[in-house]
Design a protein around this nucleic acid. Sequence first.
DNA 1: GTCTATAGGCAGATAGAC
DNA 2: GTCTATCTGCCTATAGAC
Lengths: 198, 198
Amino acid sequence: MAARPHSANGMAEQILDAAEKRVQVLGFNGFSYADVAGELGVTTATIHYYFPGKTDLGVRLIERYSERFFAALAEIESNAGDLCERLRAYTEIYERVLASERLCLCGMLASEYETLAEPMRELLSDFFRRNEEWLSSLLDQGRAAGGFDFEGDTNGTAIAIVGALEGAMLVARAHGGMKSFRAATSLMLMNVFRPPGK
Amino acid sequence: MAARPHSANGMAEQILDAAEKRVQVLGFNGFSYADVAGELGVTTATIHYYFPGKTDLGVRLIERYSERFFAALAEIESNAGDLCERLRAYTEIYERVLASERLCLCGMLASEYETLAEPMRELLSDFFRRNEEWLSSLLDQGRAAGGFDFEGDTNGTAIAIVGALEGAMLVARAHGGMKSFRAATSLMLMNVFRPPGK
DNA sequence: GTCTATAGGCAGATAGAC
DNA sequence: GTCTATCTGCCTATAGAC
């Protein structure tokens, strides 16, 4: 691989890393360019060079987070595990985020939805829609294979799972911690997996 | 009831009403004294007269919301309905909030938890703890009576229900709307109510 | 109780030197 | 690419007149 052209290489990624952490902890309206600049040892003008407006930064944050998130879902699919293990792996993505003392980037942004510019709103909606689609597909397969025993339509169940995990993270931080998050995931998994006839 | 002493009577409540709406839509960091003052036709100095600091206002908002919320739970208990109807009524509290194009005040504040002063954090934790307790009691009764068929401990199930409802509201606003919220509640209710042997 | 006036700080953003 | 310097605007908060 050829050497990168500039010494500044990676600055955009460093900015995204620092901003991402702040959004996941403090929210999009809870951090400033000065915060990020301070951590990186640059001035706010440098941040504006890479991301002219805060919405530009926000858009890239959602895009990058989504890319990684759905890459992780593709990773789950490429692994051999059965459908139960895949759903369990899905919940573990959220659990790892919470363990790092952050919340889901898109969950945080969803709470600020009404204050966000349109480009960010659209990407946020896409994130949840793609989660819903991925889970719906998994649930359909599980139902066809006989391993899952949930009731109701798969789309509704899928979006309910996303909401349950996002909400479990939210509540866990204010009350109950990781223990209450795990209670929520295991309850959800038991309900989906409960063997027919039980 | 005697006449109120001042023409200004009710100003504190009007401030709380206007601020509450803003927190439920925009978040605690998403509104300003100027917003509230503008709606009420007064200046920001008037708001500061009743609530010297924004944290004072936030504390009263949580206290008042909690009083009303737990009064609604007491109302549910005083009505004759069976345990299934009570749990259903619990979810309808959240549904009415979402129908008014707001989110739960405490859910919104939970997303901003790390930016809040300590007095607000404590009251927030109390809100979720009291919800957990109320639901735990309901679940214990339902289990003893044989009407509920969930697995796992009641406290974990209780906090999972709170998280599922909070998260369902959050996600519904960014994607799916009321339809996806209802899917989440009916899934949750079916799981708790599923008759043994099914 | 509510106002005018204003302080003091921090936000996002820009121009232009280097 | 990154800086210095600065702008404009909004924020929370306060002093003091009425």
